[in-house]
Amino acid sequence: MSTHHYLTCFADHRPVLNVTLRSALAILGGYGLAALAASAFAVGMPLPRVDAVTLAIMLSFIVYLLAVMWVFATATLLRAAAGLAVGAAVFGAWLWLAPSAAGGAA
């Protein structure tokens, strides 16, 4: 995984800034993604509402875990952020397209 093959930004080359930004991405971005995923799962899964929420909470912590691992494992900051953004887009779209929450089965 050499950095040279990837698009880098200036922060990638400053060790302290790099770690700081990754930590912020992991903690805040990861939480944001997990919270969005929780919403999407809760609304979008074809289960009774109460089960969907319970399962959504379980899955959201796994999403958080994977997001943190991704942010620290990937080569560059841009890729880390892009990965979270793609995840957010997917869950956001799911949430948006899912039938309105109010109409969900009880």
């Binding site: 969005l36 929780a38 919403s39 799962f41 929420v53 959504a56």
Partner: peptide, 11 residues
């Protein structure tokens, strides 16, 4: 910790 799940499904 994850209030968004319940608040989305039970607005």
């Amino acid at each position: 910790l994850m209030p968004s799940a319940a608040s989305s499904a039970y607005p």
